[in-house]
Design a protein around this nucleic acid. Structure first.
Lengths: 178, 178
DNA sequence: CCATCAAATGAGAGTAACTATCAAATTGAG
DNA sequence: CTCAATTTGATAGTTACTCTCATTTGATGG
């Protein structure tokens, strides 16, 4: 309920223009309760649980694919599983995260976490250790390329992120031919 | 003066334990003045002017190198130009940025800016447009790999970042062989 | 139906980063 | 020295977030 009301307020008045006070008035709870569920105002927008879906899709990929190919496939599958309304909601959230400085900043934690997670599953697949610098570099490069795809949406708000992401993965896959 | 005193306080008492009030007491200026020079407390630690040095080094690289090779060379040169005390200071700042959640979060803006800048100089070198997805992906991958090198320092605080960065670049350069 | 007890909620007071406004002081050019 | 521009300061907010402790809720066993 908190998230639903908050997101509605964010959409109508903007994120920064909406105070926590307004949210708790709307939901009719106390400030204490709000912060008990969301440690920060930003968490209302930032939190989601997509990681497990992508990890599962990655583990399902055939073993003869290269790591980048497997990731590419996993992303395609994970995005494909989303319902249209879920896609719209995710897109909403992403636009907001990109547009609001405070939220953008907080995204770094997500990216760092994604690198760690990616390191673990890549290491598992390749039979290496997660702290292997080759594993770290690949994780970093993949997440960096994904970030680049997200940022591209800033310049072209109508772009399809999943398509951009796939394109980025294809460039990674093919080596960098500039 | 503000930066010097602030950094000293941060080092001795910790970043979060140090309030802006303490800093302005130390430097004997008003709160207004502090925030006029540093829009946020974090900017005291985050701000630096290394980009131009790296860009210059990149532009100096021979034209027959691949983009990643040229970058690798540029990083090596730029780091090589630093005096020992400057290296120590940079290392200090980096440890602090990695350790303090608030500062870590703010780093994303720096990384995003680095991607944009890298996009511009890579595009210039390759005769492409900065919004070319191949350019964006390479910029993203390079910055992502650099992030991975930084994060590796969290696990091993004694590690040499410039060496890790070079290692990461060499992995990028050689394709990802996992 | 009631007593009990843990978990959830709320109230209230406080902190610290940041903003806005406007007056006072300082500086520097002529 | 003078005047104007720039820098600084004082003051009074706003808002996110924390802490502590009292109150309420709701599930469970008798």
């Amino acid at each position: 309920m908190i998230r639903a009301h908050a997101m509605r307020l964010f959409r109508t008045q903007g994120y920064e223009a909406t105070t926590v006070q307004q949210i708790i008035d709307e939901v009719e709870i106390s400030e204490s309760t709000f912060f008990r569920y969301f440690p920060t105002k930003g968490d209302v927008v930032l939190t989601d649980d997509f990681d497990p879906i992508i990890v599962a899709a990655f583990r399902r990929q055939p073993g003869d694919l290269s790591p980048v190919q497997a990731l590419r496939g996993a992303f395609l599958e994970a995005f494909g599983e989303l319902q249209p309304d879920e896609v719209a909601e995710q897109s909403d959230r992403m636009q907001m995260m990109l547009a609001v400085p405070e939220l953008r900043a907080a995204m770094l934690e997500q990216f760092a976490a994604a690198m760690r997670l990616l390191g673990v599953i890549l290491a598992e697949r390749a039979g290496r250790r997660p702290d292997d610098m080759a594993v770290r570099t690949l994780s970093g490069a993949v997440v960096g390329a994904a970030m680049a795809a997200m940022f591209a949406v800033i310049d072209d708000p109508h772009a399809d992120v999943s398509k951009l992401l796939d394109e980025a993965m294809s460039h990674l896959e093919g080596g960098f031919i500039l």
